[in-house]
Amino acid sequence: MAGQKENPVITGDMKNNVDRASILIESLPYIRKMRGQTFVIKYGGNAMINEDLKQSVMDDITLLKYIGINPVIVHGGGPDISDMLNKVNKESHFVNGLRYTDDETMGYAQMVLIGKTNKDIVSVLCGKGAKAIGISGIDGNLIEAEKLTEDADGNPIDIGYVGKIKKINTKVISMLANDEYIPVIAPIGVGKNGESYNINADTVAAEVAVALGASKLITLTDVGGVLRKLEDGSDYIIPVLDEKDIKDLVEEGIIKGGMIPKIEGCLDTVLRGVDRAHIIDGRIPHSIILETFTKNGIGTMIVKEKKEHYEYRK
């Protein structure tokens, strides 16, 4: 058309800025869909240890809150507990991957998880402009627990003050999350006589997600997801799994070792009402944002039933 000017050639810094704007536009449908929803995020692994990754995760969680999603954090803290026990020359013992927790160890675990780890996370979030509040399962009887007496196979076990969850009382969590706050939960439960129990953080996150009717359970790990070896020897991250897939992959030995309880725990949450469960690599900067606001996402998503044509992983 006469007089029409050609579009400018975009290069350099302007090209980078345009690419960033395109990423924001790509996120709009997901922001619109997920606004007002609750995400439970299990925070652990290297993302808790590496300072740069910690900052990245807290940036992501702060952003979620600012755009209207309600994140709830459940954190681990095994390395911090081990460090404390080493400082007081108390040896750690593990049974089936769980720390034997006598009365003295329970005291240190409670001190570390509630007094240090929890407050460190709250401090970083608040420093980014979020309003985070640290709580534990003791507060308001949030996590009612009892002594764990059987292992995963039903065999008798005694590992001290390690608990299993009887009930999650969601009133305090919901009150905070549905307001302007980010709840940060330390995985300590309380027994009927007021005794404290150390509880696996993955288990707490799963039970909190179910109790809240969360739309997502996001577990930060030190692996990319469920991996399958290709013919050329490279690893392929399986993007979506349902109940049948998981059963088949366990039988094939592709899902094995410590990944089995993690995956089966995620499956259990979606069978009990959580829409999606995600296992993502917390070593990747901004992994939560990549999973939540991009078309392909990252990691492995677990669903109750896989749709025949999965156009989107969301």
Rank of each mutant, 00 (worst) to 15 (best):
R272M: 08
I302F: 06
H286E: 05
L241C: 04
I254Y: 05
L212H: 12
K229N: 08
V208G: 07
C266P: 04
H286A: 06
D248G: 04
E231P: 01
C266F: 09
G282C: 06
L227K: 02
G265L: 15
L220E: 07
L267N: 07
E243T: 05
N296M: 15
K256G: 10
G273S: 06
G282K: 02
G297H: 13
L249N: 01
V223S: 03
D202L: 07
V303M: 04
A201D: 01
E195R: 13
I288Q: 00
G213Q: 11
G253Y: 07
G273W: 08
V223I: 15
L290A: 08
G257I: 10
L220N: 03
I218V: 15
I237M: 04
G299I: 09
N200A: 10
D202M: 05
G282D: 00
L230A: 09
E311C: 13
T300W: 08
E264V: 12
G265A: 13
E231Y: 06
K295E: 15
M259N: 04
K295Q: 14
Y310D: 13
T221P: 03
G297E: 11
Y312F: 14
A277K: 10
D268S: 15
N198P: 12
D242F: 02
E252V: 10
V240F: 00
N200H: 06
K247Y: 11
D245F: 04
D202K: 08
L230H: 03
R313M: 15
D268F: 14
I246L: 09
S215C: 09
G297L: 12
H286R: 12
V240S: 01
K262H: 13
E252T: 09
V270Y: 06
L212K: 10
K306M: 11
Y310F: 10
I288V: 08
I255S: 10
P261W: 12
E305T: 09
R228V: 01
T203N: 11
D222R: 04
E291W: 04
I199V: 10
E243F: 02
L241G: 00
G257L: 08
P261C: 13
G224I: 03
R313Q: 14
I280L: 05
R283E: 10
V204H: 02
E251W: 05
E251R: 14
V210W: 03
D281F: 07
I238M: 07
I279T: 02
L290Y: 01
A214Y: 06
I238A: 01
K262V: 11
K306Q: 08
L241D: 01
I288H: 01
A211H: 11
K295L: 12
I279E: 05
L217P: 03
L217G: 03
L220Y: 07
K216A: 07
H286Q: 13
E251L: 15
M301S: 05
R272C: 06
E251H: 12
E311R: 14
S215Q: 13
N296P: 09
G225P: 03
E252M: 14
D222T: 02
K314C: 10
D232H: 00
K304P: 02
L227Y: 02
I260H: 14
D232Q: 02
V240Y: 00
E264H: 09
E305P: 01
G297Y: 12
